[in-house]
């Protein structure tokens, strides 16, 4: 898939050079009907400002809060999201797919 996420990686570099704490989230695997293809990016700063997307808006909130932890401790991690379960108040994908998202600090 040819990426049109070009500006996200440029912005990640700009933010990091400004001295902001920055994390990059990348979709590494998808199953079923996932909203954004593998390789899609979300860039997050320590204040929770973000650009780009890893889903159709379903799990960005959870990724942003994990990313703030990653900016804090520097440990990259893989997050997994599945089908939304409204009764359990879990974040998930309403489209029924599953995705893995790798979150790493830029430093």
């Amino acid at each position: 898939m040819i990426s049109t996420d070009s500006d996200i990686l440029g912005m990640a570099e700009t933010w990091a050079r400004e001295g902001r704490g920055v994390a990059l989230a990348t979709v590494t695997e998808t199953w079923g009907s996932a909203p954004r293809p593998v390789g899609s990016h979300l860039v997050i700063d320590a204040d929770g400002t973000f650009l780009g997307s890893v889903s159709g808006g379903c799990v960005e909130g959870a990724v942003v809060s994990e990313a703030i932890d990653v900016i804090g401790d520097g440990n990259a991690r893989t997050l997994e999201f599945g089908v939304a379960d409204e009764t359990a108040w879990q974040v998930g994908l309403s489209c029924g797919g599953r995705i893995k998202v790798y979150v790493e600090r830029i430093s």
Partner: peptide
């Protein structure tokens, strides 16, 4: 990711 690597990318 190392900032230098992101920059190279």
């Amino acid at each position: 990711m190392d900032l230098a690597l992101l920059s190279a990318l």
